[in-house]
Design a protein around this nucleic acid. Structure first.
Lengths: 152, 152
DNA sequence: CCATAAAGTAAACGCGGTTGACCATTTCGT
DNA sequence: ACGAAATGGTCAACCGCGTTTACTTTATGG
């Protein structure tokens, strides 16, 4: 297919939009709390950082520590995360996923997996593998810029 | 490379984030008005819809007509778009890009093109072509869900 | 030790969207 | 053709979610 220069970023934006749309439609149908992308990104961050503090989350999401603190408080109220005192630092609190939070991530992964399957049905598994590698190549080259965080 | 199921959507999110980040950093450096992604999406929509009304833009962006109207008013104030009375409908106003608006889209396309070039340097032109086709395949299958609009 | 930095909290504000009410014009049903 | 409903647009009030500003408490390092 002919490719106009500069078209790929637009396609990425559209694909991203379509996929998140689909996920959130399914989440709504489950009658969950109104989770936003920032919440999902929070869960993923906590998964990979065992003794994370609010301030670490703030840096990862690219927001102020107050905003991160609000997000954590909200998620704590819903039972997705919990805060414990930091073992060595009296000022700090450690944020961690609860069983409910972990279950959400697994559920989301299943849904993303299904989206992938539908994609695979269109272009095939091998091309999906290459797509994965190509995306990974770009993301790794982008470094910190490619953090998993909200767009605006 | 090994691929975890459900990983691709996350990579798309990261790639999207990295690319928009890069574009907006460049726009800031140009000393432009503080254009947001919704503005860019507005320009693209106007490009493809010659006699669009605010209400059409609202539907495209997935916001209320009041919000779309605010966006148009703001862009009009900055000189990127103009509003003219609708030829056949006394209630309506037709929104169109000005020369400045058109120039912005061309500038953005150049920047996206450069982002593509850097990507091509990593994975090669042929793979970029396939990436384009694969993304297009997904986006076309997603239909209306894959509109070019903000994510949340 | 004491000055500075760092984690967290609280309150006021601001931006960008929605909701609700309304006007003017157009379209539709009978 | 005429009245009712629908449509494009605007205005004002509100609200969610982030920032700014200010402060408290605990660590850290000359």
């Amino acid at each position: 297919m002919a490719r106009r220069r500069g078209e790929i970023p637009l396609l990425i934006a559209m694909a991203y939009r379509a996929m998140t749309d689909e996920l959130h439609a399914r989440l709504d149908a489950q009658g969950r709390e109104p989770l936003r992308p920032a919440h999902g990104y929070t869960f993923r961050f906590l998964l990979g950082h065992d003794d994370a503090m609010s301030v670490d989350l703030a840096e990862h999401l690219g927001v102020t520590k107050q905003a991160a603190s609000k997000i954590v408080a909200e998620l704590e109220g819903w039972g997705y995360v919990e805060r414990r005192p930091h073992p060595h630092d009296g000022r700090a609190r450690v944020v961690g996923l609860t069983a409910k939070g972990l279950a959400y991530v697994e559920e989301a992964d299943r849904m993303w997996g299904e989206a992938e399957d539908r994609w695979a049905a269109i272009i095939g598994e091998e091309r999906l593998d290459r797509l994965h590698d190509d995306l990974l190549g770009y993301v790794e080259a982008a470094g910190d810029r490619a953090a998993l965080r909200p767009v605006w």
